Amino acid sequence: MRYDIIVIGGGPAGLSAALQARTRNKRVLVVGARTEDIPLWKAGQVDNYLGMPGVSGRELLERFEAHAAALGMERMYGRALNAMPVEDGFLVSVGSEVVEGDALILATGTAHGAKYPGEAEHLGMGVSYCATCDGMFYRGRDVVVVGQSAEAPEEANYLHGLGCKVTYVAKTRPDTLDEAIPFRRGVKLEVVGEGNVSALRVDGEEIPCACVFLLRPSVAPGELLPGLEFRDGYIAVDRNMATSIPGVFAAGDCTGLPLQISKAVGEGLIAGHRAAEYLDRTREAGRNV
């Protein structure tokens, strides 16, 4: 399915961008983790958002999402694994699905936590970020799911249903995890193996496996879309929230300090506005060729 604008990230910046683009009659898809995976959801009280003192983060997000949805925003829950520029827009992989858009807005927030030792070296050789994409390759084999997102238990259950021999690793056992799946509490993790993955080392003890599924809420922007320019660890943007890649805009925490809701909403407004303008301008230029 094709959209005018794909927004990656369903927090304040992404929802603000979607709302703004919808007011300009653009078909918008917001891709991202479920709302409860967004860090703001856990804030019991927000006192620095103008005009709404004492509101909870959960209430803010619910209001933001309801407002954007009422204007026709479409929503797709899942991790955007990569985005690829093509001649007339962008292809975005979301789990095992691919969606198309003419412009892209990155509102991914900040990346939480560094890569695990051995993760980068084994990517594609037994490290995966998508159970539904790669699970079939490991049917009948030992796999480990590192659950860091709200959807991770569901994906672990899916792998178990496929016939994978799943061990689930997290700080606490989720209530929705199939009772037949063994659970291991772990904090310090390392992917090990000569060539292909052979085990996940959890707090010094190895769990033999053929694949480690690292199920985080989102993928870091630099891995999501190679070629982006960064400044001080954040996506570099101009005053129009345009990135170094034509047709790609960014907003919110991923563009830098201060990491505040008001800034995210304001930048989202600009990004949505400018992305819509970009599409109008390029389409008009195409008609005049």
Rank of each mutant, 00 (worst) to 15 (best):
A236G: 10
G78K: 09
V55R: 10
T176V: 12
V237G: 11
V265Y: 05
D280R: 10
F90S: 00
V187T: 13
I8T: 05
K188P: 10
R2N: 14
L215M: 11
S56G: 09
G161N: 14
V192D: 08
E100C: 06
E36F: 00
E87K: 07
G32M: 05
A107S: 14
M52F: 10
D134A: 15
V202N: 02
T243Q: 02
L200Y: 01
H112M: 15
S56D: 01
E223N: 13
Q260H: 10
P39E: 00
P258D: 11
R173A: 12
E205H: 12
G193L: 04
Q20A: 09
F64K: 07
L228E: 14
V166P: 03
M84N: 10
F90I: 00
T132K: 08
A17C: 08
G161H: 08
G140Q: 14
G72H: 06
G124N: 06
F137G: 09
P208Q: 03
E277Q: 14
A80D: 02
V197A: 06
I181W: 00
A21K: 04
A66Y: 09
A18N: 13
E62Y: 00
E284C: 00
Y77N: 14
M136I: 12
K171S: 13
T35D: 01
K42P: 00
L228D: 07
L228I: 09
K165T: 11
G95F: 05
G256W: 12
G89A: 03
D142L: 11
A210Q: 15
A242V: 04
R239P: 03
L225D: 00
I6D: 03
F213A: 10
G14H: 07
P208R: 08
E151F: 05
V143A: 02
R141G: 08
V191S: 08
A276C: 08
S16Y: 02
H122G: 06
S244F: 13
G272E: 02
Y168T: 15
V289L: 13
G222Q: 11
G268Y: 01
A68I: 13
R281M: 11
E179W: 02
L215N: 06
Q260M: 10
K263W: 08
M125L: 13
T132W: 11
E229M: 12
L162C: 10
N25R: 04
A152W: 01
R239C: 15
G109A: 05
L159D: 08
L225Q: 00
V237F: 04
N25G: 04
L200K: 02
E74S: 08
D203F: 04
H160R: 10
L29E: 04
S93G: 08
T35Q: 13
G204D: 05
A43M: 02
C164D: 05
V28H: 01
I181M: 03
G272P: 02
G272V: 02
G286N: 11
A103D: 01
A242D: 06
V99H: 07
E151M: 07
A68L: 09
Y49P: 03
D232C: 00
G32K: 05
G252S: 11
T35G: 07
I8W: 06
R58L: 00
G135T: 10
L257E: 15
M76T: 11
E205K: 15
G147K: 07
C209A: 12
G113W: 04
E36S: 09
A13C: 11
V30A: 09
